[in-house]
Write a protein that binds this DNA or RNA. Structure first.
Lengths: 333, 333
DNA sequence: CTGTTAGCGCGTTCAC
DNA sequence: GTGAACGCGCTAACAG
């Protein structure tokens, strides 16, 4: 295992010079730098992360904390983060936190505190107060994507506006009997993403003078969306339009409608949120939130924080856009 | 930032004793251990990964190398790995390698060699000889899931058998005009997963005395599967059954069939491989390979290697199973 | 521009 | 069962 002194010997310089030549910190003459680089290359020297980090306090790694790995939104954002960080030579350390309280504590109180990372990115993580404090206590830059917590630098789409946009689209087509599939009023936090989307829905309806509507809670999976839609569409006065708070649920709703023999959009209009690649195949109209781009933006934000930039105060705003693929239309009756 | 000597002082012992008490290595009296543990807890002490790793040579992290993050199979396997590793207190360091040669070299020659990880898991990674040697040179346990390289301990389903199973299922239903969607004969390595599945298909047909069949290369996405199926099904003597080497492609094939006005399975039978959750919604018959379980198995394999067990020689075999959901049936004519 | 030196924070001998 | 002291491999400060 070749170390810095092997390189120093091979290049005929001191270890300090090797360190300077390789890290680029500190002045080294071009000639010696070349000697060092070639010696290092020849010997296949790579600095030890542990030793370097012990000496500098930096790790060249960013922690990414996610609640799920195997859902489209999360893995897509993660891919975006990874792209941007790899380009800059950072490693990603992945922390997947489940709902299990003991395991969550272990991640926040132990794993994340091992000084293994220079910064943290969270993806749509709903933190309790303790966890939020624990994160801040790390003393490293933190960027939260779509996390509702006010103590953190947050990068998020305006989910209230997303909800309003989707709803306005349906109202604009002439729908008056609408329903929403998404947040659970009981379990979801008031400032959570699902709740904001639902509130956007409700606010728009209120402004349109519509007070009758249904909200079915669902778990953001195809399966959950399908079951929720089945309940809504089985009624006598079934809604003519559904707004699902995610594309996966919207796709479930389309599938449920089909099973009930309903045509989309002739019998029922359906709109989602996300920009899931699968949406194309279902002709799903949606509010795209450019998940991959969110990851890249977050990565760039932590990188610039690591470069010494001041964190943008408050929340950065991420783009979203209505994509009409045909699953919505004017109601028939 | 509380260090080991803070704990030592608070507990009235030396740092050596704190280290022993917390790591469990070395004998400590119950009384002093309790004092140390309580002091550590009170102060919120967590060992520094860098310092500990520099002193011990161990990092309590496992590197996971993937070619894609945002595809179902990979994120699902990753979730399984994460589950199993978190339970044992290991962190995951994620390395996503694209096809870009320079970037790949950086990952293999720099990132992975920073001594940041105690072991490596690769997921369906096709390594060239140099990369494989580079991995072995790390001197840490390596477990490859579905990687074709013979130099590594590999955990894989018998993809030849998977191909045969799917094909036998179609043959058993009476199909004689079959086509395969999957490996590209030109670009895919002979021992790659896609190629093995295709060979299983071809071998089965040969045994059944069938020499006429089509193979359409596709890129394992819904889109690619759809286009490949469209080409196959547009022909006059179109096949009565399609075997797609992944569920995503099989779903694409189902969608393409629908667009051509063909009924599945009445007009064309379709079978996939994977056990993708979406398959349920399309009534897709498939060979499930239990992706999440593969991740767990791989994690357990590296953990036992880290515990000192000898790596199982050769290849571990992962389970697979035919799941009939109705997208295959006897041919009509 | 380069070398010397003193840690970074911890684990582990080796005495006691 | 416990403590003192050294070293893991590297970087930063200081001299020169």
């Amino acid at each position: 295992m070749v170390g810095i002194d092997d390189v120093a010997r091979a290049a005929g310089v001191s270890t300090a010079t090797v360190s300077r030549a390789l890290s680029g910190r500190g002045a080294v003459s071009t000639a010696t730098r070349d000697r060092v680089l070639s010696a290092a290359g020849r010997l296949g020297y790579v600095v030890s992360a542990a030793a370097s980090s012990l000496a500098t306090g930096r790790t060249r790694a960013v922690g990414v904390v996610v609640p799920f790995l195997d859902r489209w939104f999360f893995s897509t954002v993660l891919a975006g983060i990874s792209d941007a960080l790899v380009r800059r030579g950072y490693d990603i350390t992945l922390y997947s936190v489940s709902a299990d309280a003991a395991e969550r504590r272990r991640v926040f109180d132990d794993h994340l505190r091992r000084r293994r990372i220079d910064a943290v990115i969270t993806i749509a993580l709903e933190l309790d107060a303790e966890e939020s404090v624990s994160l801040r206590g790390l003393g490293v830059p933190i960027v939260a994507i779509a996390g509702p917590h006010p103590l953190l630098t947050t990068l998020t789409v305006d989910d209230l506006a997303v909800g309003r946009l989707a709803t306005a689209h349906l109202l604009g087509l002439g729908h008056r009997r609408l329903a929403h599939i998404g947040a659970d009023a009981v379990t979801d936090a008031a400032s959570s993403v699902p709740t904001l989307r639902r509130r956007g829905f409700e606010d728009s309806l209120a402004e349109a003078g519509i007070t009758q509507y249904d909200v079915e809670p669902a778990d953001f999976t195809i399966d959950g969306g399908s079951r929720a839609a089945a309940r809504l569409l089985a009624r006598d006065d079934r809604p003519t339009a559904l707004f699902a708070a995610s594309d996966e649920m919207a796709i479930g709703a389309i599938l449920a409608a089909r099973e009930l023999g309903l045509r989309v959009p002739d019998d029922v209009s359906i709109i989602g949120v996300d920009g899931h690649e699968l949406g194309r195949w279902f002709g799903l109209t949606t509010v795209d939130q450019f998940a991959r781009g969110q990851g890249e933006r977050a990565a760039e934000a932590v990188l610039s924080a690591l470069d010494g930039a001041q964190p943008a105060p408050g929340r950065g705003t991420l783009p979203f856009e209505l994509v009409d693929r045909g699953s919505t239309a004017a109601p028939h009756d």
